[in-house]
Nucleic acid binder design. Structure first.
Lengths: 227, 227
DNA sequence: CCTCAAAGTTGCTTATGTCAACATTTTGCG
DNA sequence: CGCAAAATGTTGACATAAGCAACTTTGAGG
């Protein structure tokens, strides 16, 4: 269990009535989410767990969507930490990439509901322009992948951004897809996760080493930054 | 727009009070789903649209989850049709696989909420053993991919089931991941979908042609059949 | 015809999201 | 220090939803 205490973005730290409701609510949400594996919990339930009245959370979150966005952001931070942790002691860029892949897939399996929430459209809100926070969180995560690739995970250092994006696109979709198929039990069993990841990764990296498909003009890879 | 009239699995066809509420409700759900791009509509809303009382749907669906499972099943059928349609006139197995990939990704982009619903855990219900229907629907879809691969999409016919599953695992996760990254706008823009699909597909197929990673012992690929 | 089960209806209970008005605490500032 | 304003939290209310129960209508089959 990674310690997530530092992660939650408390707007301020002055101990008030409750002390730190914002954090308490987000933590409760993470709890309920991983217990029930569903986002269909109620704000009131979270309030109850935090020992406050049913309307207190509204002083910190505009609505449920807003709360879920915050949870999603924490999820991205956790995943990024997992990936950073997994690669910390590793030198070879390829080994690092492989470790990241394992961490990525493992993180998803570990808490499917959180993973689905993170990638489930709560950060796409171009429509109502609400959540910006988790975009940057997702972006941080991407940076880790970029790093491994530029440093030569594909046999040589890469600097052409089109190619970097191309490689990331392949790597990321592959891992993302594998994770979700595992999460949704369309492939499995998930205790063979390591083998499967290794397998898929191996093939993909071989393919990338022989030819990196540069991304077409105008394509972006990674969450679009605010604006 | 594909005609989906035939797809919906009406339990029986006797025209009763309403005539065919089951179908009407599922159709309403598909409508609302693609309009609102959210599964957070109410059964009552569907009942309203179908012109029946708020409780009528419960004669056809045990609960909301059950209804969503049925919708999900239709989604799989639609996707399978799209894929079949896209490959109908094509001979070369590789061209067929590419066309299927385009259809798969395109189908997701076309109705993100439906796609998320399909792959969003409503068919994993080992926990409560509810939905079986959509598993087989998903399975039918897989068959199309198997076909293309066994027929030589990777340069030669493949018959080793471990290798077939390995190839499908790679192909499927890659397409699935790409689709969801596009759907969630983590990569884009989605009007460059064709280019990106082609790109990713190209690299992946090249990789597969040179070496097909056989799946490890005990791994399954595709929805586990009932039981 | 007449009975019965399927299909649909009305009404109730409990729970939720969210708004509004009110109470309390903290902070910032003269 | 002292107080006004902002930040937090509370109570109450409203509209709406899920789902259960009891009742009514309708079509099918003996």
């Amino acid at each position: 269990m990674t310690d997530m205490t530092e992660l939650i973005d408390t707007k301020d730290n002055r101990p008030y009535h409750h002390g730190d409701l914002y954090r308490a609510i987000v933590e409760a949400a993470l709890e309920v989410l991983s217990e029930s594996q569903s986002t269909e919990f109620s704000l009131r339930e979270l309030a109850r767990r935090a020992g406050v009245s049913h309307n207190a959370p509204y002083k910190h979150f505009a609505d449920k969507r807003d709360l879920l966005a915050a949870v999603s952001a924490v999820g991205f931070e956790l995943l990024a930490m997992r990936m950073a942790e997994a690669t910390k002691e590793l030198d070879g860029p390829r080994a690092r990439l492989a470790a990241m892949a394992r961490a990525y897939v493992g993180g998803g399996i570990n808490n499917p509901a959180l993973y689905r929430l993170m990638f489930g459209g709560y950060l796409g809100g171009e429509d109502d322009g609400r959540p910006i926070i988790e975009r940057t969180a997702a972006h941080n995560m991407k940076a880790l992948i970029v790093d491994a690739i530029t440093c030569g995970a594909l046999g040589r250092p890469i600097s052409n951004t089109r190619m970097i994006d191309g490689a990331i696109l392949v790597f990321w979709s592959q891992m993302h897809g594998l994770t979700l198929l595992l999460v949704d039990r369309l492939v499995g069993p998930s205790d063979k996760l390591e083998d499967m990841t290794e397998n898929v990764l191996q093939g993909m990296l071989d393919g990338l080493v022989s030819s990196i498909p540069a991304v077409p003009e105008g394509v972006w890879v990674g969450p679009p930054l605010a604006g």
